[in-house]
């Protein structure tokens, strides 16, 4: 099956006074139609930047310095603003971290839904409102007929995130980029929101790029997972394989940090040190100062994504196999 989204050799830079910061360096990944790709990695790994680049909203001075992004075979990373605007919302939706601040406080949720629907379709105001009501029902807002005219501050955090999801999905995009959609929410409702997102996308055949720190969410939700480290992909592959038998030493360590019942030893298996800052990424493999298996080649030559059997990992341990 042809991929819905293809990212190839993406590189994102920030020109600064003291030279160019490379925040995302040579990332390639694909998402198939209806697939859920989880993206994990430490803070600052470049997850959000990758997502932002895909929807074409990198803020200057950040820019795509190299690589290509294609949606259904069409190149979208170099489109004029107006062309890309028509793709945002219509073909690629987005859900951000903080539902409390994602909605305009001065407009009712109904108005914001209707506005989005009318931007991307020819619906009349009445049709758009009917559709907005349907959506609110679908995302599980109780008494939607009444709630549609309420303002964002009248909803709880979880309810607001449901509205945000309705907004992201309101014209059935092919892909949704969900950047830590539940981090800001109460733990007790995080699972509901993820389940909702997953159910809706499955029903409509929408693919999801799910950025999160929560390996538990990845394990339950994603089909495949990409592990990012210092602006690069450390390992990418089917979620089961990456969790159970991660090949890259970094993802192995990361998976070790998932709390497991009856397994106290695993929990202690944390990786020493921390991810380097963008200005201090070492030559060769970015992970080499922390890697328990580091050898000479790792310090000079940068590993490409290599086949490890089921997953792909950028690690020299797999150079000959």
């Amino acid at each position: 099956m042809a991929a819905l989204l293809e990212v190839e050799h993406l590189r994102i830079e920030f020109p600064t006074r003291r030279g160019t910061l490379v925040a995302v360096d040579d990332i390639s990944l694909q998402i198939a139609e209806g697939e859920v790709l989880g993206v994990v990695g430490e803070s600052g790994a470049g997850k959000s930047l990758t997502g932002t680049a895909i929807i074409g909203l990198l803020e200057p001075p950040g820019r795509i310095a190299a690589g290509e992004i294609r949606l259904m075979g069409r190149r979208i990373d170099n489109l004029p603003y107006e062309e890309m605007r028509k793709i945002r919302g219509k073909q690629i939706g987005a859900v951000f971290q903080d539902p409390l601040t994602s909605l305009n406080p001065l407009y009712s949720v109904g108005r914001q839904l209707v506005e989005t629907i009318q931007t991307h379709t020819d619906m009349s105001p009445t049709q758009a409102r009917t559709r907005a009501l349907e959506l609110l029902h679908e995302v599980g807002i109780p008494a939607a007929e009444r709630r549609i005219d309420h303002y964002p501050h009248q909803f709880s955090g979880g309810m607001r995130q449901r509205v945000v999801i309705a907004l992201a999905l309101c014209v059935n995009p092919k892909l949704v980029i969900a950047d830590e959609p539940t981090t800001a929410l109460d733990v007790s409702i995080q699972a509901q929101i993820i389940a909702l997102l997953k159910r809706l996308c499955r029903d409509h055949g929408t693919a999801i790029m799910l950025i999160t720190h929560d390996m538990g969410v990845i394990a339950e939700t994603a089909d495949r997972v990409a592990v990012m480290y210092a602006g690069r992909i450390a390992e990418i592959g089917p979620v089961r394989s990456v969790i159970k038998e991660a090949k890259h030493p970094y993802s192995h360590g990361l998976m070790g940090s998932i709390p497991k019942i009856n397994d106290e030893k695993e929990r202690l298996d944390q990786i020493e040190g921390s991810m380097p800052r963008l200005t201090e990424i070492p030559p060769g493999c970015a992970f080499n100062p922390r890697c328990p298996h580091v050898f000479d080649r790792c310090r000079v030559e940068r590993p490409e994504l290599l086949d490890t059997g089921v997953t792909q990992a950028s690690c020299w341990l797999y150079a000959h196999g």
Binding site: L57, R85, R88, G93, F96, T101, S102, N104, T116, T119
Partner: peptide, 17 residues
């Protein structure tokens, strides 16, 4: 710079709106 403007852009609203 606010989040709701970023989200409005992500929804594909026109610059004018």
């Amino acid at each position: 710079r606010s989040d709701y403007i970023k989200f409005a852009r992500a929804r594909g609203l026109t610059n004018r709106a």
